[in-house]
């Protein structure tokens, strides 16, 4: 079962990379070939949000049950989420260079992902500043919740300050998907592939963190 999963992740992502780079793309005004980034950039952003939500969810579970397993899961999810968040920032910024003319210009979307990176950074800084495992789990869970709860305010604040130049989200305000069928198929496959990749690595990461925790608590 596990082997099948691993191989299918490999095959799906290989297909997506091939299709995303090589297959022809329908003509989109002002975007053209640059639209190909969406096959990679959107799944990365999606996963960084999913990972953060998972980390938040496990933080709440930890505080309710005081079961250290949940903290390990929360920490692993946030570590991976941070990685995908960096990838989303990098792919987005590369695209911005070619479409908007500069790598970074404080578009509302760039600001929000910057804040997400800052939250992850602060969370890791807090974790490394506490020695006791139990206290580390408790305080970082509290911080993750406080930070996570103020994050949604950006949805209301950002549009009041500056107009975004970011292309419409995949599911936009009108609830319609403005995408060519062939593009949509590649995009959805990519989303599936990267989400599967995320859960596969997350599983390994969680097990690794769990072993690390066992070893460190045994040596005390």
């Amino acid at each position: 079962m596990n082997r099948i999963y691993e191989y299918s992740v490999f095959i799906i992502i290989a297909l997506v990379i091939f299709a995303g780079i090589v297959l022809p793309i329908p003509d989109i005004p002002a975007l053209g070939d640059k639209a190909r980034v969406l096959y990679f950039h959107v799944p990365m952003s999606w996963i960084s949000v999913v990972a953060f939500t998972m980390s938040l969810w496990y933080a709440v579970r930890y505080l309710r049950t005081k079961n250290i397993d949940y903290d390990i899961k929360s920490f692993s999810a946030s570590q991976l989420g941070f990685l995908f968040c960096i990838l989303a920032t990098a792919t987005g910024s590369l695209w911005a260079k070619f479409n908007w003319g500069s790598f970074w210009n404080w578009d509302p979307r760039q600001t929000s992902i910057f804040i997400l990176l800052m939250i992850y950074g602060a969370y890791f800084a807090l974790r490394s500043a506490i020695d006791s495992e139990e206290q580390k789990a408790r305080l970082s869970s509290v911080y993750a919740i406080v930070a996570g709860i103020t994050m949604p305010f950006f949805i209301f604040i950002m549009p009041r300050l500056v107009e975004t130049l970011h292309p419409d989200p995949i599911i936009n305000n009108s609830g319609k998907i403005n995408m060519d069928t062939s593009m949509l198929i590649i995009f959805l496959t990519s989303l599936l592939g990267f989400t599967m990749l995320f859960f596969w690595v997350l599983n390994m990461k969680t097990r690794l963190e769990f072993i690390k925790y066992k070893i460190s608590s045994n040596s005390d």
Partner: peptide, 20 residues
């Protein structure tokens, strides 16, 4: 409860305070 209290405060408070 953490070790490096002084430097940690601005790091932790900034993302939380930014919307405000």
């Amino acid at each position: 409860k953490a070790n490096s209290k002084g430097t940690l405060y601005p790091v932790l408070s900034f993302p939380v305070l930014l919307p405000l």
